[in-house]
Write a protein that binds this DNA or RNA. Structure first.
Length: 745
DNA sequence: TTGTTTATTCTTTTT
DNA sequence: GAATAAACAA
């Protein structure tokens, strides 16, 4: 970078180019930095904060810096400390969610919350919404719980509280949704819980209702900085505006070409209209890329140039050349994985550290084939995302115990573990408990702990008493100030949770036991590193941890993650896999132009992760939903001029024995799952269609119009017989068997 | 009430 | 094919 035309100068030991330095030094109001991929975005932000602290007399305590992940925050904090030599303890740097949680714990009482409130993840949210729907007698097939949550989330992102919506619903559905929203919020409040959106939104409500509180925070945060500004949502914009209103010392960095979170409410308009929102904004554009080779950049530039709605810019680098971008076509996903594993091994032989290699894909499900083949070849890998550690059943159970201990109103956690391990407390008992709690105006857990429920007869009563004793023990321990890990291990032994797993000799139980021990270790380490912090602090960290936060680049392990997780990272060699229409762009976004553009940006983000070599691949045929589908190469590849990459077709190679594309299992009929010795459940014969066709689950069939498909479900009987078929185009159709005229394959 | 089998849906992406 | 909901048997 020293040979570039705007030769670098140093600020506090950081090399900066002219534009970067100007942005760091300027102190005349709002600043917006458009920073393309690899143009030193993090460097500028770090330098800016360090500069503020070291040269302008701003205390770390006066800085509010929002990053996209906790990991990024931790790294930046460390770097800043290094540069300035000043302890960064007071510095507020973290994700919007974690910093808002911090504010809310402080101000909890103002909002009628306890500082130990629980934070609900989406599984918890789903439980709450289902509870509400049951209460309001809304059936799940009339309105999907996830859809309702989505609408609620949109209201929250716009910072519209439910009481403002009362009576505004026009259609029946709207009225119902608003009603659900109200009940949902009441349920959360009763449980002393907030969901992810609430963390931001409640801070906004706090500031709106209590100007004095707002002013205090405005006075504290004289400087507001935001990273990845293109992925902020409306509520986050309101927050930033609130905080920066007074001093107008706001500095945001982002790249509209890397906006990939609109489905989470992110508004690309935030960055595109920043200068209108903050008059007098000084705008900078960073276009010199320090990461990738020219060939990679040319490819990436071409990918993104097809998008219409974007701020014009073009990345360039002073590094010339680089190895050509390769696009390879494979026969199927297995060949793709096997060949890439082979290539990875060759890289290893060339002494390229595998920690500098990544396999990136659109969906988590795609990791499976790679895991299998890498394991078979003894290649170490690190998998980011998928089912994360904290989403595992046993971990969620353990956490629920701790949560309930910290927050006795947390009914969702209470219901989760009341009968785990099984204590004979079934659905009926739970209903009775809920009624009892409602009558007394307290939570289920409080009813149990008061001993009021001990009056319940028989097994259930006994189970409840057992449950109560466990928590009495835990409370004692907590009151004595025992460290969290001790509390957890006592819970595990008192409930018999560990014993139960130890008794069972299955592979699964052993894995679970291992996970539990891992959690225990994590708690020990955590308490060690965070003396004085409470159980709630730990639980908060757990709730707000991203998959990528736990990721540690390891010298000899290949990295595998989704394109979303890869944002902000870079690798020497990147394999961009599964580049097929339907995956990227996702089939579900086919009908929306703006979503297609976002998928294109995702492809762009992926391509720009590569420093030296970029290998893309797509397959003719892929296993999805347990069936083989024929795929077409992604439309985004088709848009790139052939001169910008080298195309290799390996789909004719016979690495795997040749077979018809569709019938992967050599046409072997899928075994029918019929209950043994039950004549009633023999395969259904449709005697009423012209031909006698025998349908069974998993049966491969041919349809005149839709082509091949797999029978997923059979319902009805005789002339009413219906079959649900998943077709090759990825769509599922339910059809009357007598008209469908399906042919067995 | 519990543990089994069977049916159904599901795959985007995550703080 | 895998995870979950629903249905069922013990």
């Amino acid at each position: 970078m020293n040979d570039s035309k705007n030769a670098g100068s140093f600020i506090d030991g950081l090399v900066l180019n002219d534009v970067q330095r100007e942005a760091v030094v300027y102190d005349g109001g709002p600043q917006l930095v458009f920073a393309g991929a690899g143009t030193g975005k993090t460097r500028v932000l770090t330098a800016k904060i360090a500069y503020l602290i070291k040269h302008t007399g701003v205390y770390p305590y006066n800085i509010f810096a929002a990053t996209f992940t906790n990991k990024a925050a931790a790294q930046m904090r460390e770097r800043i400390e290094q540069i300035t030599g000043i302890p960064s303890t007071g510095l507020w740097i973290g994700t919007f969610h974690s910093m808002c949680a911090r504010i809310l714990r402080r101000e909890a009482h103002t909002l009628g919350y306890t500082p130990a409130f629980s934070i609900y993840d989406d599984a918890d949210q789903l439980s709450v919404i289902k509870k509400v729907m049951k209460l309001l007698h809304i059936e799940e097939r009339t309105a999907q719980p996830k859809h309702l949550l989505n609408i609620i989330s949109r209201y929250k992102n716009a910072c519209i509280p439910c009481d403002e919506l009362e009576g505004t619903g026009r259609t029946f559905f709207e009225k119902e949704t608003i009603n659900v929203y109200g009940h949902y919020q009441r349920e959360l409040k009763a449980a002393m819980a907030m969901d992810f959106d609430d963390l931001i939104t409640n801070v906004i409500y706090l500031f709106r209702k209590h100007p004095a509180v707002l002013e205090a925070y405005q006075n504290q945060f004289k400087n507001v900085l935001v990273d990845e500004y293109q992925d902020t949502n409306l509520a986050q914009f309101y927050l930033v505006r609130f905080l920066a209103q007074k001093h107008k010392r706001i500095f945001v960095v982002g790249d509209d070409d890397q906006s990939i979170y609109s489905w989470r409410g992110a508004k690309i308009e935030n960055i595109l209209s920043f200068d209108k929102q903050f008059p007098g904004t000084k705008t900078y554009t960073l276009e010199q890329n320090y990461r990738s080779s020219q060939t990679v950049l040319d490819f990436a530039n071409s990918v993104i140039s097809t998008n219409k709605t974007r701020a014009q810019k073009k990345l360039w680098t002073s590094k010339s050349g680089g190895s050509a971008v390769v696009v390879t076509r494979y026969l199927d996903d297995r060949q793709e994985a096997a060949s890439i594993a082979l290539k990875i091994m060759e890289l290893g032989k060339k002494n390229i550290p595998l920690g500098d290699v990544a396999v990136l894909y659109r969906t988590n499900a795609q990791s499976r084939v790679f895991e299998e083949v890498l394991r078979k070849n003894n290649i170490r890998y690190i998998l980011v995302g998928g089912i994360s550690f904290y989403e595992r059943k046993e971990i969620k159970d353990a956490i629920a115990y701790l949560r309930l201990l910290a927050n006795p109103k947390d009914s969702i956690s209470c219901e989760r573990i009341l009968n785990v391990p099984a204590r004979g407390i079934g659905e009926k008992t739970q209903e009775r408990l809920a009624a009892l709690a409602a009558g007394k105006g307290c939570s289920m857990f409080e009813v149990i702990m008061a001993g009021d429920a001990a009056a319940l007869e028989g097994r259930a009563g006994k189970g409840l008493e057992e449950f109560r004793q466990v928590f009495i023990g835990l409370r004692d321990l907590a009151a004595k100030g025992a460290p969290p890990d001790e509390i957890l291990s006592q819970m595990l032994s008192d409930t018999g949770y560990t014993d139960l797993l130890a008794e069972d000799d299955s592979e699964e139980s052993r894995a679970r036991l291992e996970n539990i021990n891992e959690l225990l270790n994590a708690l020990v380490v955590w308490s060690d590193e965070n003396p004085g912090k409470t159980l709630s602090d730990f639980l908060e960290e757990v709730s707000l941890a991203a998959d990528i936060d736990g990721w540690k680049q390891n010298g000899d392990a290949v990295n595998m993650m989704t394109l979303h997780s890869a944002k902000g990272l870079e690798f020497r060699t990147v394999f961009l896999v599964g580049l097929e229409d339907g995956l990227i762009p996702s089939r579900q976004n086919f009908d929306d132009e703006s979503k297609i553009e976002e998928e294109c940006r995702l492809f762009y983000v992926g391509s720009t992760r590569a420093r030296e070599s970029l290998e893309c691949s797509h397959v003719n045929n892929r296993l999805r939903f347990g069936m083989r589908l024929d795929m077409e190469p992604s439309r985004f590849i088709s848009c790139v001029p052939a001169s910008l990459y080298r195309f290799v077709d390996r789909s004719m190679d016979c690495l795997t024995p040749p077979r018809p594309a569709f019938q992967s299992r050599a046409g072997a009929p899928v075994p029918v799952r019929i209950k043994k010795d039950d004549p009633v459940r023999q395969p259904v014969y449709d005697d009423f269609s012209q031909e006698t066709v025998q349908y069974r689950m998993g049966q491969l069939v041919m349809h005149g119009k839709y082509g091949r498909g797999k029978v997923l479900a059979i319902s009805g009987f005789g002339p009413d017989l219906q079959v649900t078929v998943l077709f090759q185009d990825g769509n599922r159709r339910r059809m009357m068997a007598k008209f469908a005229n399906l042919q067995a394959l």
